[in-house]
Design a protein around this nucleic acid. Structure first.
Length: 569
RNA sequence: UGGGGGAUAGUUCAACGGUAGAACAUCGGACUCUGACUCCGAGAAUCUUGGUUCGAAUCCAGGUCCCCCAGCCA
């Protein structure tokens, strides 16, 4: 809405070539396909995360670039795990990311009837059978990675018996798990997916879309390729772990009278340092209360990133930068941060905010006096205009901007050192007030009235320009600073995902100060707090207590230098 | 010899038999009323051993290492 520019950045000019695009281009050129049709097929059992963004940008991007179309298809074949909340969230998030499926909204559940008929066809052709074995028995006969499996004792049932049983499964005559329909392929195959895979299982659960119509539901393998074929998908793009499902995908298409012949291609999923992109673990984080919800600003979900203030454009740009390949990879989160800062720097209006206030009294500034100064809203965009800020005798500066005994490269305020208060005056500190604990609680300073606006008539320079706020005319606000959710670049997944959780992923600063102009800031629209970072107002704000979330800090080479020098000195 | 994939700067990708290139990160420097931004510069890679070829990251053969698969999940 707010951004009317064409949403082509993710795939438009300058987009990198990759093996998928090469394939599509070659297929178009050879005439194998007339136009490209892709699909993004999430299962509605959780929220979309930045890993899904890679798939979304790829599938929708391909359609945009080559003039085809991309379907949004819910892979809703397992009602035990799927919920309407997720369906709604997925649609919202794909749209927010900047993509539009138009009329092409589909569900695997739309094809339940057709899939059922195909299953009967397979039975009639002697290529599928009903198996009464328990799950354990099936597992025991499946063999191992290196040993062939054994045929099920039910493998050679007659077509009539299979048809009868399968119809009774459908009619709801049996309890969950009592029987399954299996394809009759090869129990000795080296590819375990071909060892008589399950096509249908009994699941007496209501489905968000089909209600209680069905008592049996198709498996992923039996639904996916055929759904692609029904929709006329030309390139069915999925992640690497489905590579050895491809022979099965093809087997169904070859053994069924499907209306088209899609092809499956696989690419490496995204991994990002210091976070986890596994729906299972993300679900655990939410359920276990380790975060406040799917849209907790620390979450790598699209909903979390949006609340955090990350623009969709930044995500698209990031995805474009990392490319698409088949090698497993772990992308440095620094690359994502670069895209976020780049997008934000262009658009975010500048404001001043003091995160950890330290009181400054300008002793030679008249008590009770205050004046208005003009500040620029965006350094690179004059059209963004200016605003007024108030100066007075009592101010707040950042605690980090003062050191009583500064090291050599510290340019900020210290006793006797002159600095500039942005848009205001040069000041010097000449006394430090401490409490009983020895903590610095106030600075006594003087200002040079001749430097009004920030420049000295005599041409003298200062090395630092600091942000500040008037004590009387600024507002109190809560700041929430986020650190990585995990302490390790490659956190443990699996069962002990909590082992590497960062206990300090959220830092709350309850007594920060902001410019009064920030009171009407919009939620999810970032501003830059100069010298600090990009922040956005959070929906947790109340009228008496605004809450701001730090989207991301500014690059801080000074802090880096300090950290570097510490071990040496 | 269970099956299927993959190996190029620190990281993520290019190079499709003809000069190994980019971005991020790192390190220098310039600029600066944000230690930001911007600009300039530097260092940094073909898993290994053979072979084919005038020429190999690319083709062939062997080896090494990494990832995925034994759900009635997707």
């Amino acid at each position: 809405m707010k951004d009317e520019r064409p949403e082509l950045d993710a795939a438009g000019e300058g987009a990198g070539r990759d093996f998928i695009r090469d394939i599509v281009q070659a297929d178009l050129k050879s005439g194998r396909v007339k136009s490209v049709v892709t699909r993004f097929p999430p299962e509605p059992n959780g929220y979309l995360h930045i890993g899904h963004a890679k798939s979304i940008c790829l599938n929708f991007g391909l359609a945009q670039e080559f003039g085809g179309r991309c379907h949004l298809r819910f892979d809703d074949t397992n009602p035990a795990k799927e919920e309407q909340e997720y369906i709604d969230a997925i649609e919202r998030d794909v749209r927010w990311l900047g993509f539009d499926w138009g009329k092409s909204l589909h569900h695997a559940s739309d094809y339940f009837k057709q899939l059922y008929e195909w299953a009967e066809d397979l039975i009639r052709a002697g290529k599928a059978y009903v198996d009464d074995q328990t799950q354990d028995e099936m597992r025991a006969r499946r063999g191992t990675l290196t040993e062939a499996g054994q045929d099920s004792p039910f493998r050679n049932r007659s077509v009539d018996e299979n048809l009868d049983l399968f119809r009774r499964m459908r009619a709801g005559e049996f309890p969950n798990g009592a029987r399954v329909l299996r394809a009759k392929i090869d129990m000795a195959s080296g590819n375990i997916n071909l060892r008589d895979p399950v096509l249908y299982r009994i699941l007496n659960a209501p489905h968000p879309r089909t209600g209680t119509t069905w008592h049996i539901y198709p498996s992923y393998d039996f639904a996916h390729g055929q759904s692609d074929a029904i929709e006329g998908i030309t390139h069915s793009i999925c992640t690497l772990e489905f590579e050895d499902h491809r022979p099965l995908y093809d087997w169904f298409l070859e053994n069924l009278k499907v209306p088209s012949r899609p092809r499956q291609y696989e690419f490496a999923r995204l991994n990002l340092t210091y976070t986890v992109l596994s729906k299972r673990v993300l679900t655990e984080l939410v359920r276990g209360g380790h975060v406040t919800g799917w849209d907790d600003p620390r979450m790598p979900t699209l909903a979390g990133l949006r609340r955090r203030g990350v623009p969709a454009e930044a995500i698209r740009d990031f995805i474009k930068r990392i490319g698409v390949a088949k090698a497993n990879s772990l992308v440095d989160v620094g690359m994502f941060e670069f895209s976020v800062r780049e997008a934000l720097n262009k658009t975010a209006l500048r404001r001043m905010a003091v995160l950890k206030p330290l009181k400054v009294v300008i002793e030679n500034y008249p008590d009770g006096k205050s004046e208005e100064l003009e500040a620029i809203n965006h350094p690179d965009n004059p059209e963004a205009g200016t605003r007024k800020i108030r100066f007075g005798r009592e101010l707040y500066i950042e605690q980090d901007d003062f050191m009583e005994n500064p090291p050599k490269k510290f340019f900020r305020l210290s006793p006797g050192n002159e600095v500039r208060l942005r848009y205001a005056y040069f000041i010097k500190c000449h006394a430090v007030v401490k409490n009983a604990n020895g903590d610095i609680i106030e600075l006594r300073c003087t200002y040079d009235p001749a430097t009004k606006g920030g420049n000295a008539p005599d041409g003298r320079k200062v090395k630092a320009t600091m942000h500040w706020l008037s004590a009387a005319d600024s507002l109190r606000a809560e700041m929430r600073l986020y650190n990585p959710l995990f302490t390790k670049p490659e956190p443990a997944g699996g069962e002990n995902f909590t082992a590497d959780l960062n206990p300090n992923s959220l830092e709350v600063l309850p007594d920060a100060r902001i410019e009064p102009t920030l009171l009407d800031a919009k939620v999810e629209v970032p501003v830059q707090f100069e010298r600090q970072g990009y922040f956005c107002r959070d929906r947790d704000s109340t009228s008496e207590r605004p809450v701001f979330i730090r989207t991301i800090g500014l690059r801080d080479t000074f802090a880096k230098d300090v950290a570097k020098d510490r071990p040496k000195s």
